[in-house]
Design a protein around this nucleic acid. Structure first.
Lengths: 203, 203
DNA sequence: GTCTATAAGGGGATAGAC
DNA sequence: GTCTATCCCCTTATAGAC
């Protein structure tokens, strides 16, 4: 039975990066001190600069990974020629709820930092063209040529991602807690596709 | 013909606060330097501490306002006894899209900072109880007793708020630009209620 | 109330020993 | 490769003149 991650290869470099992922994700770039990362990694501050030259460079490596994790898996599903529109929707919803449940802070982190600095990775990916030429959007246009696909896409992703962005607020207000949040997100795997299909038919 | 804001009463205190709103909203608490605020306000750094004691206190005043702006107008609409469920949905959508269009950074700012620190204003508001006892939720339960209202509420707000949270990313990817974003949001005032109604009927 | 000057400390980065 | 000690700039906050 194969495991996804070996026990702890944990080179020093990887220990620092892992600590950086944790601290940056929780506090964001500005509020993070390199000293926090060093402590979390159980190493000395100097080593951080030895391996990564600067806070900025370390951050960019982490950020790149996280952008990839958030956006990189989208296009393959949208272009899977085997799947109907409904199946793609189910796939996207299910996949993203799984990914985000395992990384609840991911969307807040990426979307927030993306708003503060320009990351060329995103700009150069030409996501707009890739998406608008995707099989998903073609199927969507065939089904509803009166509907701007952007509206539909934003709405589906709003239903998927927004709960995670609003999660701290939901905890604070008592609308939910850690345990029931997980249950809610699991329920949404079935619910959101049902609603998406209803939206496709609505005039 | 009455104007909403008088030209510029602009006491020094208000100039500082206005500058603080601007800078904090754009950069967040940690990345904001009091020097930035002082410069933006056209005053000296010392005056900031004279009027507000510390960066933290100034931030809390701004934050309180912003939380109020984002959450404070919700409950009145949800409890308006005159309105049907459908009318409430239309009212919420239309109201929030107007507010957020005038303050596009508001949701990212509030949700992000809320995740970093605990603001007692939010905790003490008992939003969960107020909402769950609202006329809106009662009507929702009557219509669909098989549906957890939280799912519906998250989804509607996802469709309303998520575009604003994802706005920087949408600009970066070229999915939209400042001008077409405004048009999109206006279209959504009609579209989201239509979809919400379809969701209410979907089984 | 508003300014200039400065104290006090935080935080990123490096020198240099081991 | 890893550590300790330190540099030095940046930032918040205050003292004190006007």
């Amino acid at each position: 039975m194969a495991k996804k991650k070996i026990e702890t290869p944990a080179t020093t470099e990887e220990k620092i990066k892992e600590a950086a992922r944790k601290v940056f994700m929780r506090k964001g770039f500005s509020a993070t001190r390199t000293r926090d990362i060093a402590e979390e990694a159980g190493i000395n501050l100097a080593l951080l600069n030895y391996y990564f030259r600067s806070k900025q460079r370390l951050f960019e490596e982490v950020m790149q990974e996280k952008i990839q994790k958030l956006l990189g898996t989208l296009v393959p599903i949208m272009n899977d020629a085997e799947l109907t529109l409904e199946e793609k929707i189910e796939g996207i919803v299910s996949h993203y709820i799984d990914v985000l449940s395992a990384n609840p802070d991911l969307p807040m982190f990426v979307l927030n930092e993306l708003g503060k600095n320009n990351f060329s990775i995103v700009k150069n990916a030409n996501l707009d063209k890739v998406i608008s030429q995707s099989s998903f959007v073609k199927q969507l246009r065939e089904r509803r040529n009166d509907l701007n696909p952007v509206h539909f896409i934003i709405s589906i992703f709003g239903m998927i991602i927004f709960p995670f962005v609003a999660r701290p607020m939901m905890f604070l207000t008592g609308m939910t807690n850690e345990k029931s949040f997980i249950l809610l997100m699991n329920e949404r795997k079935a619910l959101v596709p049902v609603w998406a299909k209803a939206m496709l038919k609505a005039k």
